[in-house]
Amino acid sequence: MDTVLRKLACFVCLGFLLAACTTTSTKTAEQANISWSSGLNKRIVLIEPDITLGSLTAGGAFDPRADWTRAAEQLIDQETAILLKEKNIDFAKADNLQNPRSIQVAKLHSAVGRSILLHLYGAGGQLPNKGKALDWSLGPGANTIRTDYNADYGLFLFVQDSYTTAGRAFMMVGAAILGANLQGGTQIAFTSLVDLKTGDIVWFNRLVSTAGDLRTPDPAKKVVRNLYEELPL
């Protein structure tokens, strides 16, 4: 769907309290030449995904839930593997990096990913000299992950998903009566694809959604599809 239309659709659904709505916004680096090492199976490594599910309390605080998070982690892994398999790509997971250099790369990504979110997507956060292109890199240090996991590309993923509690829903209805729009549970996710040879971030996607329950298989599948649909691989 055209992104303008999509934005418009989302804007419209903001008017409806519990209306479900999902937007994704992908960016691809201009010089993203996807190339795989010859002789190797195409392989991607998912690097320490940061997934947290919880509920939104009546007061609006985020209340993390361990069981939901675990369920979502499993479903996301499963669906990601299936999706990549369709593209003929093997999928590995680096859940607990040991190599200190790789740990530094992962830490660096948490800062760079956040910066991309802020400066490329955030309203008013644009850097005057950086422009709108996705031209961010973690540097060739990312190579350690490439060697350790035998993968040409790394995938980073951040998901924070909150669900409306009964108390929050009650507050939302109350607010609606008073003419205010109180936000319900929201899913925020972003993912980036890194060329582990150069460290360049070749593709980035952000997802904001008020629908798609990650705790159950079918919606989780949809979320993973939304996230990786436009993966340039």
Partner: peptide, 19 residues
């Protein structure tokens, strides 16, 4: 948790940014 009125917005932004 029980005393954080109207902060859904803030906590989500912060959580979203706090990778």
């Amino acid at each position: 948790k029980n005393t954080s009125n109207f902060l859904a917005f803030f906590s989500l932004i912060a959580a979203g940014a706090g990778v």
